[in-house]
């Protein structure tokens, strides 16, 4: 059973169908890629999974339990975390505080013996932002902001992690390190879903790739299959006209 199972999710905005019967599985220990042209509905799917946007039909399950009726807050407490394409950092806080907030919030609902301060420090080290830990996030370049969002979402110790274009704004070296980190996270047993435009990164780190076009999944497969799939090529490049 997949950790996160999206089944036949359909979302309409007014008359437009944004998502049309989308199925997606994310398994523990794997990085699942989700790619597609601009406006295909990737971010909408993330918003639906995390409960920020209601769905019209279909179901979303975490570990076999349906989550359709849960608020975003409750879904997060079941082990779902995400980053945002249009960075949603806490701009008034420092890097350390951004992660600490999340660690504290988790401690508030998980009520386990974790020490938020220690969790925070460990994560800062892991994402490699020790040098700027006390800088306000507003002062950081986008690439580092992406890392802060990653660190923040990891502070809730999620089972399923949704990453929305986490590498955009990162330079080549940063992207390389980031890819390695994603593989590490998956190796630890997390189910990672990656929306990303940097195809090289997707092809390098993903075990399985879903392609979304016009709100529909048009292909699922391993990176090599996807690269040569004619439907995918057409979706990206259009039909010769």
């Amino acid at each position: 059973m997949a950790q996160l199972a999206v089944r036949g999710v359909t979302v309409r905005f007014g008359g437009n169908v944004a998502l049309d019967g989308v199925d997606l599985d994310a398994d523990p220990g794997m990085v699942t890629g989700l790619i597609g042209p601009n406006g295909a509905g990737k971010t909408t799917l993330f918003n639906v999974i995390t409960g920020l946007i209601p769905l019209n039909s279909g179901s979303i399950q975490l570990n076999g339990a349906p989550m359709n009726d849960l608020s975003p807050t409750k879904r997060a407490r079941r082990g779902l975390a995400r980053t945002f394409q249009r960075l949603e950092l806490f701009s008034l806080l420092s890097v350390r505080e951004n992660i600490r907030v999340a660690a504290d919030i988790r401690k508030g609902w998980a009520r386990d013996g974790s020490d938020p301060a220690a969790v925070t420090e460990a994560l800062i080290e892991r994402i490699g932002l020790g040098a700027v830990a006390d800088a306000r996030v507003d002062a950081l370049p986008t690439g580092q902001c992406r890392l802060v969002e990653l660190g923040r979402s990891l502070a809730t110790r999620p089972e399923v992690l949704l990453l929305d274009e986490p590498a955009s704004g990162q330079d080549e070296n940063e992207t390389l390190a980031f890819g390695a980190l994603l593989q590490e996270l998956a190796a630890e047993g997390m189910a990672v879903v990656l929306v990303e435009h940097d195809v090289h990164l997707v092809m390098r780190v993903c075990h399985k790739v879903h392609v979304l076009d016009f709100g529909r999944i048009i292909a699922v497969g391993d990176p090599q299959q996807i690269q040569t799939n004619p439907a995918v090529v057409a979706a990206y490049l259009g039909t010769p006209g």
């Binding site: 920020l52 608020s71 975390a81 949603e88 907030v101 923040r152 502070a155």
Partner: peptide, 14 residues
């Protein structure tokens, strides 16, 4: 944090 982004706070379980 809440003042900055309610959406982000909710997805952290606040």
């Amino acid at each position: 944090a809440m003042k900055d982004s309610e959406a982000a706070c909710a997805t952290l379980g606040l």
